[in-house]
Design a protein around this nucleic acid. Structure first.
Lengths: 214, 214
DNA sequence: GGAAAGACTGAACAACAGTTCAGTTTTCAT
DNA sequence: ATGAAAACTGAACTGTTGTTCAGTCTTTCC
């Protein structure tokens, strides 16, 4: 119902968007930054350069606005995941991780603070946060199952926890990005950082941290 | 300044606590369940069986109450971590994980929804959430460094990401507990679950998921 | 036992939240 | 061009929030 939100043009031509779309864009950013309760309808209206009444006109209520934004990004996420599983005929986990990161970075470019919104959705226990994590988990799980069928997984590995542990390591940077940025000075999704992270993740997942005496 | 909060007696003798302590206990639980903004001072006062005015009398403001609760648990956490690093003369990661879990379970028993409060503190970017994650990270990091000195870490392992990846897997169940409980039907910290999780974590961290052809 | 100090009450208050709605402007098919 | 539908406005309204404060009850210490 809320899929009519057009993508913003490359340059800052926000004003070219109609009120409804501008409201959703601005609301997403403000929710991401300050949380749903930390933003007033007047804040949103002002940032979107629109009157308060328009929010209720289009979305019925503030809660309705949140639902519309959520629905929009849930749809967008699902599309991305379907695209991913199609493109990733090769059943390797590295490309899952890479796709995950590419997708986030692309979005970040077009919708600033999209990652923060994702983060908030997952940690706020909203319904779509639940869906989101489940889709994350499923895509990882599928890949591991395939590898398993090919005999690439150790016999004594725990089939239940393996995908979850991988998911934790993949979602970790997303959920804890603010802290990591503080500690390392850079976001995990930075080009340089990502290479290292990706490599460390791959190595740990497949071979572990113990020295291999061959 | 807010360390005078007595531990509640075993049985539900909440009413034996004085107003100030009862307020902090109740506030912690409500904040954990509904978030800071999701709770009104009247909710807190009612749950603590106390008048609204008392909150401002003791804590000056609602924000002051939050600060007091945070300070109390930050102190408590630090104490637990110091205790841990003393007790854990043996430098193995398993006991870090076990200690982490024991500590949470013990607290859960005495302070219901303490884990949820922890979770919220970390995800809400509060100042003490930052401290908390850092202490987590540091204790893991120390252990790994020691193992490293003993030659127990592979030469080509990434020293920067290794402790972070481990921390992600350790904090994962805490942050994502609601989802995991939905998926597995049980909390990770349940006695049965923990054994399996702990084993899977150890195995993955040291030896990885690839089959070992010996 | 008495008085000062602190714990505690709750009605009153001011600020602010989300919503409403009568009215104005824009859009667009005919 | 015209008129109806949709987009849009913003002052007014209503309920809720955190805070205040004058006053009561309880504890404590000489």
């Amino acid at each position: 119902m809320a899929d009519t939100m057009a993508k913003p043009a490359k340059k800052s031509s926000r004003s070219s968007l109609k009120g409804r779309d501008r409201l959703m864009l601005v609301a997403m950013q403000l929710f991401a930054e300050r949380g749903f309760d930390g933003v007033t309808v007047r804040d949103i209206a002002k940032a979107a350069d629109v009157s308060v009444g328009l929010i209720n006109h289009h979305f019925e209520s503030k809660e309705g606005l949140r639902a519309a934004v959520d629905a929009h990004f849930l749809a967008e996420t699902s599309k991305a995941i379907v695209r991913a599983s199609r493109r990733l005929a090769v059943d390797d986990l590295e490309s899952v991780a890479d796709y995950h990161r590419t997708w986030i970075r692309e979005y970040e470019a077009e919708w600033p603070s999209f990652a923060a919104y994702l983060r908030r959705a997952i940690t706020e226990n909203s319904e779509w946060g639940e869906n989101l994590f489940r889709e994350y988990y499923d895509s990882v799980s599928r890949m591991i199952t395939r590898s398993d069928a090919d005999g690439k997984i150790a016999e004594d590995a725990d089939r239940l926890w393996l995908p979850l542990l991988y998911a934790f390591m993949l979602v970790g940077p997303l959920l804890l990005d603010p802290y990591i940025r503080n500690m390392l000075g850079k976001s995990t999704y930075d080009p340089e950082m990502w290479g290292r992270f990706q490599k460390a993740l791959r190595q740990l997942f497949w071979f572990g941290a113990a020295p291999r005496d061959s």
